[in-house]
Every structure is written in structure tokens, then in C-alpha cells.
Design a protein around this nucleic acid. Structure first.
Lengths: 257, 257
DNA sequence: CACGGCCTTTCACTCAGTGAAACCGGAACT
DNA sequence: AGTTCCGGTTTCACTGAGTGAAAGGCCGTG
């Protein structure tokens, strides 16, 4: 016990899981130990238990990877699978009509998590990943999720520095605040070259049974052939359809006037 | 320490996660403690840590659910997300052509796990679930995965009693063995009313770079309007397409003659 | 055959984890 | 307003699960 005296076993186990990222999905024991800030023997023992359970798998190369078992359990997350399952048919419809990228995301604290994505073969390549996180202030889905988020979340995002992804990214809190008001007024969000210079996205809210916004759906299209105003009704209709299948009478209730 | 003396903390934590099932995705602390066979105070403490990390979430109703964070980490499972991501476009193509259920599954020990599913709006309702497990001896994907599984896995399945789902389910080891040989010969599997009396599925293998079968794809259609022989080439083509995108020269190498 | 990288096991120590019991607070009776 | 039940949390003294330094495999490789 040197690094953090009194570190719980549970936190160590979770730190081991945290060591895996999209950029490094396969790690040797040494790498794992270093990332989790654990002595090697400790890592060895905990990892052995995780492998026995199926949370991790050891490949032929000796490296450890996240195991299917963990994915299985994770699939029980109601906001993950439940929503996904309900939304997928509608997302497919939207894809069949537009043949553009369709994305589904939920808010997790001050970030968003992509729940599902239909990547069109001929659509703009998007750099997002299902299961991946992203800031709320740039993407279409992010703007929708932020616009209908609790006031404290909005303030937290507006107070922190807004990361810039392109020369056009809105990084000024005042402009973002006005943008969010506009989203609530129109009921959809447009993110024009905010994340990459070739993409534009149009997003709409998805509401749960109590009327709160639980997710957002978006179309991501090439910026040059985009007509946000024409796309918005399509995305909004999809959002309404999914909301309805969640058992709600549609109508997002904003939290901030 | 009474129940199992010497039970590791890690195993307790994992037991808590195990308590969640598709049938009971939301549990009170007491239920959790009971299922994990832990005293309530212990469960309370471990659960608190899991919630802090995001593995679990506590709903408004006080019940605990699997959290998004766990789903996020689980999404890093290479056989989960990696395959899914690669296969989805092809699955969509197959869906657009047939408008039937398309399923993707991998083998996990002596069972299969559904990785992805496109549920057609007007297709037969299937009772399977993404992230769910199933026996290998009944479904189309199961037969494919079993036919190309290592010999010891096949023997293990053939040795155990084969569960019956319908009057037509093959439960006799000899017949199953012959069926598997037929799958290897033709390169696809047909499961006719083996799981439910109204559905039939046609499945084909997906091969990894080294030629081993890593997954299976299937179409599930209503039994009465099914023409397996006509569907097989479609499914096989989809399997080949996905195999190719996995970076392989197609050709499943069977393990058992 | 010595060296280094990588991982597992040994061993004596000790503090994180433990569970019985007490405590808390809300809901449901009386 | 008092009592009991129920679900959950906290206290407290005890103890064995977890620990890490060191030693021990087990490869490839120079």
C-alpha cells in the first residue's frame, strides 16, 4: 500500500477495466498494471479472477481483452439495450429513406454516449463509435441533449472551457446558450461543421413516458449536400416515433426557459 | 465469513453483477444481496462502489440497474463491437433485400451469444435478445457455430441432454451429428421449427483471417413462407462479405471430419 | 548460457473487509 | 402519536483476504 493507502479492492478491479480504451483494447498484464497503478502481482491476481469470470479474455498473443461476458452484462443496461432495441427499426427506416448516417445517443453526466449508429456505406465517414463518449456542445445529438438537460448540467458545461474541433466550433458560452434556446424553440438542433469540416448533423429529441428527453437521434450528412431545413422534419418524425414506442405522448418539456 | 469462507471480494462484486438477468434487470439491494448470497451490509458497501464508478445505477424507484458505464466498457469486447461494427452494413443489405430478421451470433463455450439483430417490422417476432445466450443445437446460427467448433466442444454438447423446444427439435445425438456433417458439407445450416413452431432459420458461417469460423449470420423467416434453398445463397453471400471485411480468403476449415 | 522481458508464486505482515447489532426513516397499521 | 414493519446504512471490534518485496519459472534472443 504505497500509491493510495486504503484503496479498495473493488476500485482496483474497476481500475483494471478502465485501463481498456477504444485506442488500446488489448493490453499485456504489465500495461494493465501500469494503467491501473497497481503492483504487478496484485494486477496478476485480480486479472486472473476477472478472466475466470469472463470479464476479460486472454488472447493467443497473451494480451488481455474485454470479454464477451462483460458485454453481455452491459447489454442489460436499460438505457443501452432497451432504447437501442426500440429505436433500431425506426433508425433503419430513416436510413432507408436517406441512406445517410443515423445516430442515437444519450447523455451521461456532462457528456454523451453513442448507443447505436447506422453507418451508411456511401455516407460521410463519421469518427464516432458506438459505446464512445463525446462532448455535448458540438454534435447535433449533443446540442439536443444539452438543451433539454437539467439546468445544473447546462451551467456546468457552459462554465467549463468548450473544446474546439474545427474553426467553426462554437466555443463562446453566450453563443452556445442562445443556440440551446433556439433548439428548444424549434425542437431540433443543427450542428454545421462543428466537429469536422465536411459533416453536418441534424438532431431531434426522444422523450420518455414522463416527457423528459432521454435520448437524441440524428442524421449526419456531407456538409456540401446538406439541407438542414428539409432533413429536420424527417429526424423529428423519427424521434417522435421512437418516443411513442417508449410510451409517451410527445412533447419535450424543457428545463430552462 | 460464514457462507463460503475465503470468498474473494472480487468474486462478490462479480456475483452482484451476475444477479442481473434479462428477466430481472432492476433489483433492490435486498434482492441483490440474496442473489449474490451476501450479507446486506456487505452488499450495500460493494454496491455503493459500483454505483460510484457507474457499473450500476440507482433508479428513482430505489432499485439498482446495470449502468451505462458497464455497457461502454463491454462495448470494447472485440468479438462484440468489432464484429458487430463490421457486419452491420452487410446485415442491413440483407435486411433491405429480404425484410426478414437478420441475426449475428458467436459461440461462447457451449452456448451462443447474439451479437446483433435486425428485427424486421413485419417479420416473425423472435424471442431472442441481443446479448442473450442460447443453446447451440437448435438455432441456425447455433448449428453453424457447432459444426465448425473444436471437437471437444461438439462432444461436450452431444454428450449432454439436448433440450427440446418444439416437438421437432432434434434431441438425439446421432441425428444432430449427421446434421452437423451436412452443415459442413453444404456450408449452411437450416433450422426448421426447432425453436418455435412458426419460425425457420438459415445460417452461414463467418470466418476470421486464419480461416476459423468466428461467427454466424442467419435469416429467420416464417416457416410457412420459407424456401431455405433459395435463401441459403443470400445468407452465404452475406457471410462471405463479412468474412472478407475481416480480412480473410473465404473457406471455413472444419475441425471434425 | 547469460540476459531481459514478462508473468506467477511464496511468505510474513497488516489493514481492508467483515458481519452482528444498532441505527435511521418512511410507510402502513392501530 | 404510537407501534411495528421494511429496506437500507452505519458502528465497531475482529480477522483473514489482500498485499508487495523477493524469489522463481519461462520463454525468446544475443
Amino acid at each position: 500500500m504505497d500509491a493510495q493507502p486504503g484503496r479498495s479492492v473493488t476500485s482496483k478491479v474497476l481500475a483494471l477495466l478502465d485501463a481498456f480504451t477504444p485506442a488500446s483494447p488489448a493490453l499485456t498484464l504489465s500495461e494493465l498494471a501500469r494503467r491501473a497503478e497497481l503492483p504487478l502481482p496484485t494486477a496478476s491476481r485480480r486479472v486472473a479472477e476477472l478472466v475466470a469470470w469472463g470479464a476479460l479474455e486472454r488472447g493467443d498473443d497473451g494480451r488481455y481483452r474485454i470479454g464477451l461476458r462483460l458485454w453481455e452484462v452491459g447489454s442489460l443496461a436499460p438505457r443501452g439495450l432497451g432504447l437501442r432495441e426500440l429505436a433500431l427499426p425506426t433508425m433503419e427506416d430513416l436510413y432507408e429513406v436517406t441512406h445517410e448516417n443515423v445516430q442515437l445517443a444519450v447523455r451521461q453526466d456532462v457528456e454523451l454516449v453513442f448507443i447505436e449508429r447506422i453507418a451508411g456505406r456511401h455516407a460521410v465517414p463519421v469518427l464516432t463509435r458506438v459505446g464512445g463518449r463525446f462532448a455535448l456542445h458540438a454534435t447535433g445529438v449533443g446540442l439536443v441533449l444539452l438543451a433539454y438537460a437539467p439546468a445544473e448540467v447546462q451551467e456546468q458545461v457552459l462554465a467549463a472551457p468548450l473544446e474546439r474541433y474545427t474553426p467553426l466550433t462554437i466555443t463562446e458560452p453566450g453563443r452556445l446558450r442562445r443556440g440551446l434556446a433556439e433548439v428548444r424553440r424549434t425542437g431540433y438542433a443543427v450542428s454545421d461543421r462543428q466537429v469536422t469540416m465536411d459533416a453536418l448533423s441534424v438532431a431531434a429529441p426522444i422523450c420518455g413516458p414522463e416527457g423528459s428527453v432521454v435520448a437524441a437521434i440524428s442524421l449526419v450528412v456531407a456538409h456540401h449536400r446538406a439541407d438542414p431545413v428539409a432533413l429536420a422534419p424527417l429526424v423529428q418524425a423519427a424521434g417522435r416515433t421512437i418516443s411513442r414506442s417508449l410510451g409517451t405522448s410527445y412533447g419535450p418539456r424543457g428545463s430552462v426557459g
